[in-house]
Design a protein around this nucleic acid. Sequence first.
DNA 1: TTGAAAGCGATACCAC
DNA 2: GTGGTATCGCTTTCAA
Lengths: 334, 334
Amino acid sequence: MAKIVDVAREAGVAPSTVSRALNGDPTVTEEYRERIGLAAARLGYRPNRVARSLRKRSTDVIALIIPDVGNHFCTAVTRGVEDVARESGLSLILCNSDEDDGKESLYMEIAVAQQVAGALISPHRHDADGGALREAGIPIVAIDRRLDAEIDSIITDSRSGAREATEHLLRSGWTRPACCAGPPDVQTARWRADGYREAVRAAGIEPLLAHGTYDRGGGATAAAKLLDGTAPDALLVSNEQMALGVLAELDRRSLRPGTDVGLVTFDDTPWAPLIDPPMTVVEQPAYDLGARATRMLVERIRGEVSEVRHQVLPTRLVVRESSSRRLGPQRLDL
Amino acid sequence: MAKIVDVAREAGVAPSTVSRALNGDPTVTEEYRERIGLAAARLGYRPNRVARSLRKRSTDVIALIIPDVGNHFCTAVTRGVEDVARESGLSLILCNSDEDDGKESLYMEIAVAQQVAGALISPHRHDADGGALREAGIPIVAIDRRLDAEIDSIITDSRSGAREATEHLLRSGWTRPACCAGPPDVQTARWRADGYREAVRAAGIEPLLAHGTYDRGGGATAAAKLLDGTAPDALLVSNEQMALGVLAELDRRSLRPGTDVGLVTFDDTPWAPLIDPPMTVVEQPAYDLGARATRMLVERIRGEVSEVRHQVLPTRLVVRESSSRRLGPQRLDL
DNA sequence: TTGAAAGCGATACCAC
DNA sequence: GTGGTATCGCTTTCAA
């Protein structure tokens, strides 16, 4: 691998001039710029970014720490991040925390050690403080969830999304909607539970919720608990992975969404319209969330902003059949 | 941020000794090891990996280049990679090539520049040669698809998976199965098309295929083309994203899988059993593929192997309802 | 505008 | 077994 001194020798100039030329320093004369470009091409020179990072004390890599790569919402966010990152000349280290505080801090440590230029993090707990990242002075943007500390954030309006969904259930004729809420230590889960509570209370109905982890198992467990208890006739589910578990549990009990039980879940997915019956969802602008978060981070990395900023993006209710109350027939093809 | 000289001063030893102690060099005496450990803890010392990488000329980061983070198969592979990588003390840079040669080579360039210790790549074209990575002598394992060059690989047996699926369709009473094949420049798509051809030819039936990109649009287009042509009565679909498009297209034509048209697709997903009717799939051991590929890569990074290795993992047909031929009734709830 | 030289922080070689 | 120190490849003063 050719290094900068090789290019310098080949072009008959000093290494510092090569560095300046290749980094677009306007003080370099056109003639040198060209000669250096040619020499570099001839040698197949590729700057060693590690050396560069060591010297500049920062890389052009950002870290994205998300709870679950298997989650469509997260991958959609990731795509948004990726696109803007690439546009901005940054690469991405993707880290999967699995909603695990341990893994989350491990990844933050790694990000610091790798000298990332900035980090996007979807923290498991709001009272996390960006730990190692913060100490190292690395710019952070909290994404989808907030941090108590003074840190930029961008989230969706989960609470009003949940409220709207619950009101829709009520309007559709369901009388006892319950909530399969996410883990109580995760903000989005709490916000959604809050929105649900507001809506049912406003209708004079006692809230009925069960918490579960943000995965299929959590959804199945929460649904089972609710269904075994004071029989609800509709369910608001806190995320898409839980919804998968809820659907499995309903199937196990031969309960059909839309006829036997009303169903709305957070997060639209490609398969939501294809299942039987098509599922009503609260859509979140995931791609946009990722893209905007990355822009915020880039601005912060460049030092273009000083005040802490918080953005909130709206959700959208997509009505399909799982929430509209219809009396039988039962499927004949069971 | 404390650096190694600070720790050395604090512990009253030389920097080189600190380095040795912290890296578990057995020549360091217990007493020094302890004193240094304490000093490091006191200062909150965290080794700078960038400096370390520069000196060692390699990082403890590996790159994973996959075509589509939105694809469940890919994210399952990613999880396998991630788990083994973490066990081995490596971090992961995840790159999404979007089946785009340009992005693919850009990411390979970035990986080289970042001095990754190794790369896992699911190449768009088999005649790619690992480009920049190969030149830089960085270990590569091709995953899910092979490379013409002498490079380790691990794939699943797409061809026999497709053959088996087609035979199953035939045995189920469908008489004109067609194939929604993936892009012809992607190996897995060709292998699956080959398996399909073998099976129909063995049954004395003329193959009927349409190619499309590995996404929803590609699936819809291929299905439309086949359905508009010499009406097939069953479809073998080459991947899960295409299946989503095929399902949409069938729905558009009010064709119901299992009654009007037999359907099998590659890749099992959490939603496959939930759609209407539950979908028969060719399951690939995605997690295992990622995990094994990473182990292969780690062995190669450590220089534990010399000969080029190729692994093939079996697929498994999971029969659900979309492939079993049943005459009506049509859904009453349409 | 260009060149010389001093680091960035860790590792590894060579003395002791 | 431990300490001094050159080195990895690049950027960035400082002088010319």
